[in-house]
Simulated assay, not measured.
Amino acid sequence: MINKLDAALNFHQTALRVRNERQELLASNIANADTPQYKARDIDFKAAMQAAMHPASSTGTATGGLQKTDSGHMQGQPNQGYAGPGDPLFRTVTQASVDGNTVDMDAERNAYVDNGIRYEASLTMITGQIKKMLTAINGQ
């Protein structure tokens, strides 16, 4: 029974975790908008969800996409110099700045608000699922 409950809530739990990580990155970008040489970062939500839901299949191995194809190859370390699915990526520069900062405040604010709304939607959906389960358990 617990496995079924866990499976029913796993997707939304994962979505909330990924959205939270993304919100922290976006907030960091906004906070560092005036920091010289700061490079804005973001998470590809779709890739992060796929990596979280299917950790071994999304990157080929659980070691961040490094595969040992010959016995003479060195063993790779997880995520060493590799940006796999769900890892923070540097945002594409839309407008060059003199100080090397890549934060576009309009894009960051829009992404922050959009991610926040989607976070709230995930909370609403998981709350609805829990209410349905409670109704089924209580037999109403």
Rank of each mutant, 00 (worst) to 15 (best):
T92I: 13
D44N: 11
M53D: 11
T102L: 03
R41V: 13
R19P: 04
G116M: 01
V113I: 11
N10C: 00
D87P: 02
N32T: 07
N115A: 14
N3I: 03
E24H: 07
Q75V: 10
T35I: 07
Q77A: 15
M49Q: 07
M49S: 08
D42T: 13
L89W: 08
N29C: 07
Q13D: 00
G100D: 03
S122I: 03
M125P: 01
T135Q: 05
N79T: 09
L26S: 09
A48V: 14
S71K: 15
L66A: 14
E120H: 05
I130D: 01
D104S: 11
F45C: 04
D87L: 12
A31N: 08
L16M: 03
R17N: 05
F11T: 11
L134D: 02
T63P: 00
A51H: 12
K131S: 07
V113H: 03
G81R: 14
Q37R: 15
T61P: 06
G128F: 01
N10V: 00
D106R: 11
T102V: 08
F90M: 12
I43N: 04
A7V: 04
P78Y: 10
D106L: 07
T63C: 08
G65M: 04
A136Q: 02
Y112D: 06
L5G: 11
A8I: 01
Y38I: 09
F90N: 09
K68I: 15
R19S: 01
P55E: 11
R19H: 10
L66V: 14
L66T: 14
Y82Q: 13
R91T: 15
L66S: 12
G84T: 06
A111L: 09
V93I: 13
K39S: 03
G72Q: 15
H54W: 08
S122G: 05
G84S: 14
S71R: 14
T63S: 12
T94D: 10
Q37H: 12
D44M: 04
N138D: 02
T102M: 06
A15S: 08
T94Q: 14
S122V: 04
G72P: 07
V98L: 12
Q50N: 13
T69Q: 14
M105A: 06
I30Y: 05
S97F: 02
E120R: 05
G84Y: 08
P85Y: 10
G116C: 04
G81L: 06
G139Q: 00
I2Y: 14
I2H: 08
F11S: 02
G128W: 01
G76W: 09
A107V: 10
N110C: 06
D6G: 08
A8E: 02
T14I: 07
N10W: 00
V93N: 15
L16R: 01
Q129M: 05
E24A: 02
P36M: 09
N10R: 00
N3D: 07
